[in-house]
Amino acid sequence: MQIRNLADNTQKAYQLQVSSFARHFRRSPEVLGPEDIRAWQIYLTNERKLAPSCVQLAVGALRFLYRATLRREWSDEDFPPPRRPVKLPVSLSAEEITRFF
Rank of each mutant, 00 (worst) to 15 (best):
N9T: 14
F25P: 03
F25A: 11
I97N: 12
Q41D: 02
P80H: 11
A58P: 02
P82C: 05
P52D: 08
I37C: 02
A61H: 00
S75R: 08
A68M: 13
C54Y: 12
V90E: 07
A22W: 01
L16A: 15
R26A: 15
P81C: 14
H24D: 08
V86A: 11
S75D: 13
P52T: 09
L57Y: 04
S20L: 14
L57R: 09
S19T: 02
S20W: 10
N46F: 07
E73D: 15
A39K: 01
F25S: 06
S19E: 08
T69W: 09
R27N: 15
A7L: 10
E35D: 09
P85W: 06
F21G: 03
G60Y: 03
Q15G: 14
E35V: 15
K49L: 07
F79P: 01
A61T: 01
Q41S: 06
F100R: 11
E47F: 10
L44V: 01
F79T: 01
V90P: 06
L6Q: 06
E95R: 05
R67F: 02
W74M: 05
D8S: 15
F101P: 13
Y14H: 08
K12L: 09
K12I: 13
E35L: 10
P80S: 07
V86I: 13
I3D: 14
E96Q: 04
R27L: 12
G60R: 05
L44H: 00
V59S: 12
V86C: 07
L65K: 01
K87R: 10
F64T: 00
S53P: 05
P34N: 15
K49S: 03
T45Y: 02
A94K: 04
L44A: 01
E96I: 02
G33M: 11
A13V: 01
F21L: 04
A61C: 09
I37E: 01
K87A: 00
E47K: 06
K49T: 07
R38W: 00
L57K: 08
L16P: 12
A58F: 02
E95C: 08
N5D: 11
A68D: 14
P82W: 00
A58R: 05
L32G: 05
A68H: 09
M1T: 09
T45N: 03
P89W: 10
F64A: 03
R38Y: 00
R23A: 11
Q2R: 13
T10W: 13
Q2E: 15
P29F: 04
D76Y: 08
V55N: 07
E96V: 04
Q11I: 12
P29I: 07
L92N: 09
V55S: 05
G60P: 02
Y43S: 01
L92V: 11
R71S: 13
A51G: 06
F64C: 03
R72H: 01
K87M: 02
A58K: 05
R4W: 09
F100I: 08
S28V: 03
V90K: 02
D78Q: 14
F64R: 00
I42Y: 02
Q15P: 10
Y66H: 08
Y14N: 10
R4K: 14
S93K: 00
S91C: 14
F101E: 12
V31E: 04
T98W: 13
S19D: 09
R48G: 02
L92M: 05
R38A: 02
L65V: 00
W74R: 13
